[in-house]
């Protein structure tokens, strides 16, 4: 899976450079998030501006990351959700779980 990671102030930003987050690649994201928390990172932001499709496996990988954040006393925020992707969060009520921001810059400032 094509991910790029950058540090902006105290936030570690994971950019998903893929159009799809599905059962084929979501475990890569899950493992990367886990690795970052285990390496001592606390505040993660997943920016999804390139992601135009997410399935239940992709949502599951994000939920797994959220639980990882909680157990590591960290945070996991999301940014730049495309409208159809956002509708999947609403359908599964996950928009009430995650802090979702319009852009990575907004999330970092928060």
């Amino acid at each position: 899976m094509n991910l790029s990671i950058e540090q902006i102030q105290d936030t570690t930003v994971i950019n998903i450079n893929e159009e799809r987050l599905d059962a084929h690649n979501s475990s890569d994201l899950k493992l990367e998030v886990q690795r970052l928390y285990e390496s001592g990172k606390k505040n993660l932001l997943i920016d999804m501006k390139d992601v135009r499709f997410i399935d239940s496996s992709g949502l599951g990988a994000l939920v797994s990351g959220f639980k990882n954040a909680t157990s590591n006393q960290g945070t996991l925020k999301l940014s730049s959700l495309q409208p159809q992707v956002k509708s999947m969060f609403e359908l599964t009520r996950l928009h009430r779980v995650f802090e979702i921001f319009a852009s990575a810059a907004d999330a970092v400032k928060s």
């Binding site: 399935d55 239940s56 599951g60 939920v63 797994s64 959220f66 639980k67 599964t92 779980v97």
Partner: peptide
């Protein structure tokens, strides 16, 4: 409950 799985058939 925040489960990793179990949303596919629901969707």
């Amino acid at each position: 409950k925040l489960e990793d799985r179990g949303r596919g058939i629901f969707l």
